[in-house]
Design a protein around this nucleic acid. Structure first.
Lengths: 206, 206
DNA sequence: GTTTGTGAAACGATTCACAGCT
DNA sequence: AGCTGTGAATCGTTTCACAAAC
């Protein structure tokens, strides 16, 4: 299993959500076409996406929903729980940590860091905000592979460097900056402001 | 100017940020190579991206920073302000409205809606949370082209339908669901949970 | 008859490479 | 000499279309 496109992985996440819905409703099997219409693609795309990982369907029948859910969770690496460090106890970080969706999908925020002395030491959903200076010490004690960077743009790159040096191998970056990291570190950047600009572009050029 | 790839638009947003930085530091010109290294791409990519909209560079010299900033803002539709409606006064919505980045880039949240009676009527950064039932009435009075959907997954699709019917032509969807909308409505979906799953996949399959 | 799995074809985006301007 | 702008080549992704399985 090599060279799976990012777009494929994103669609797999979507398929998993639909399948979980179907599963909850007791639907036993689902066809690539049904999956496609809910996910805004085509049945051929669904089948291609899945074909990277094996062949799970029954011809003439479709896919068995519970098996498919299990398989997709396994493929996406959700057959385990992931401890996650959160950097930045500001507005965005605050919304994230109280957001239950992460925990439900296997991501546990196990540490929160901030550099604002007024925030350090305060309680946060059962966690205590720790001084950013203690980042390396804490990650040495309780390592995590995934970190969420929810800090101001200027602070993002230096922190990314420290995270990479401390052994973090995946960063979810919530700042409108392009992070430069060593090749072994995976980065995904999500910027609502940039998405809004995409919408502004679409509305302007039509 | 037709058929510009989404990836191109996203990179233009990034270039604009770098150029604004350069501008603030008083740098007069910048080459495609410099822009590329900050944006994680290649100089050829930068030139191709820009070439969709004209030729703004000087051979042997590079691009004049202030002119380029102005040009990119114009291309991205940022030469004006955009009133935006926010749907959902929960944690995420709350973080968004207090976030200054939007306003700085030309997006003004001018109305907030929620269906929770306990929230309706409360003040929010100079705005009053309005009843979701009044969505159509309010949008009739003060139309917006862009709406941000920050509501639970189940509520997203029905609201998207109402927004489309009320004349909204662009939706920034912050829920892990694929919205089905009429073709004249532009949608961008941002889901941190889905991005985390992308990281989980990358870490698991390496 | 229905739906999968998959090579082949079509399409789209990125990279190459170089002529042309400064 | 340096750097842009852009066709041509390459690479990757999506769509087509059909044989095989149920």
């Amino acid at each position: 299993m090599r060279k799976v496109a990012e777009s494929t992985v994103r669609r797999l996440s979507l398929y998993l959500r639909f399948l979980e819905e179907f599963d909850a409703r007791g639907v036993a099997t689902v066809s690539s076409g049904e999956l496609a219409s809910r996910g805004g693609t085509t049945s051929a795309q669904v089948r291609k996406d899945l074909s990277f990982f094996g062949s799970f369907g029954k011809r003439g029948m479709g896919y068995a929903v519970p098996e498919m859910v299990a398989k997709l969770r396994e493929i996406l690496g959700l057959g385990r729980r992931w401890p996650v460090a959160l950097l930045g106890a500001g507005k965005i970080g605050s919304a994230l940590i109280e957001h239950h969706g992460f925990r439900e999908r296997g991501f546990d925020i196990v540490a929160v860091f901030d550099n604002d002395p007024r925030k350090v030491g305060t309680a946060w959903n059962g966690l205590t905000v720790q001084d950013e200076a203690r980042l390396e010490a804490e990650l040495g004690r309780a390592p995590v592979e995934i970190a969420i960077l929810a800090v101001p743009a200027e602070a993002a790159q230096p922190l990314a460097d420290r995270l990479a040096a401390a052994g973090v191998t995946a960063i979810l970056n919530v700042a409108p900056v392009q992070l430069v990291v060593p090749p072994e570190v995976e980065v995904k950047t999500v910027s609502l402001a940039m998405e809004l600009e995409g919408l502004s572009f679409a509305l302007t050029n039509r």
